[in-house]
């Protein structure tokens, strides 16, 4: 798709070059350094090709997957694992589908048995309309998983108190939501995310609801350490093109955060001298 677009011709090379702008500024999670601050979810892509294009253009090094019962009617055609490159991607299994802490632990153990790294995106969203994370079960599951040696990245409501409690338990990150999963609504929880960023000693990953590159840039400008995007990429007409746009926005937001944004003012502050032009 979009083959006439020069920028899309070697998205991998471009994003690699752009990621080099911030090589002195790696994202460190549980002692492991990553160049990319853009995490990508692999759900809902219309084809393996679409996912492959998005992953290549994203430059993402952390890529989420889910676990489900094998469909015995059409087993493992076009497996997602054929698209992922364990040399380049840290494959981060989520616990979606779990309704209790026990179910989340069961899913995490299965992922580990699959031979994946013992990292888990803890996601406990029992209520189907808004898929909001259950804070009580999430806290319980985090404690159980950490005891079993998992590196835990919990998906949470943008609740600074909960974020602090999870950090104190020993989670590797916190992942507050911008808006409900798949809603493409942007950083609606901005005020609470600001507090989480201010107080957090572990990386803050804004996850869910980011529907446009400007949303990702906004989160990064605020000082988020990374973002995770899935639906906005899967929904796009050009999956690689959108992944590239997000990757550039993530880096732009990070560079702006590091450069220091100017203060927001109620009144004008002239950028030209205020004297009359012939005075």
């Amino acid at each position: 798709m979009n083959q006439g677009n020069q920028v899309s011709e070697s998205p991998q090379k471009l994003i690699s070059q752009i990621n080099n702008l911030t090589t002195d500024d790696p994202l460190v999670i549980a002692g492991r350094a990553f160049r990319s601050r853009f995490m990508v979810g692999t759900g809902k892509f219309p084809s393996a090709e679409a996912l492959r294009a998005a992953l290549a253009a994203s430059g993402a090094e952390i890529v989420t997957v889910a676990l489900r019962r094998v469909d015995l009617a059409k087993p493992q055609t076009d497996s997602i694992m054929s698209v992922l490159d364990p040399g380049r991607h840290l494959i981060l299994p989520n616990t979606s589908g779990a309704r209790t802490a026990e179910e989340a632990v069961r899913l995490a153990r299965m992922a580990r048995a699959m031979g994946l790294m013992p990292w888990v995106k803890l996601e406990l969203t029992p209520e189907p309309k808004y898929l909001l994370p259950d804070p009580v079960e999430t806290l319980r599951a985090a404690e159980m998983l950490i005891k079993e040696g998992f590196v835990v990245l919990p998906y949470i409501q943008a609740d600074p108190v909960l974020a602090k409690r999870l950090e104190e338990l020993g989670t590797a990150t916190v992942m507050p939501l911008g808006a409900p999963i798949g809603s493409n609504r942007g950083v609606r929880t901005r005020d609470m995310i600001r507090i989480i960023i201010e107080q957090s000693k572990v990386p803050v990953v804004v996850d869910a609801g980011l529907g446009a590159p400007s949303h990702a840039a906004e989160a990064m400008e605020m000082g988020a350490d990374a973002v995770l995007v899935n639906t906005a990429l899967a929904d796009a007409a050009d999956h690689g093109g959108m992944a590239q746009a997000f990757a550039m926005a993530v880096i732009a937001g990070r560079l702006a955060y590091r450069a220091g944004l100017g203060p927001v003012r109620e009144e004008a502050a002239a950028s030209s001298p205020l004297t009359g032009f012939l005075e």
């Binding site: 989420t64 889910a66 489900r68 997602i80 979606s96 999963i181 798949g182």
Partner: peptide
């Protein structure tokens, strides 16, 4: 069941098996 033990793990009448794989997810 440990993956290395699939060959040696015998099945018995009435066993309940769950077979799980990786799929796309966010």
């Amino acid at each position: 069941v440990d993956r290395a033990a699939y060959r040696d793990t015998t099945l018995a009448e009435g066993d309940v098996l769950e077979l799980v794989g990786i799929v796309g997810g966010g």
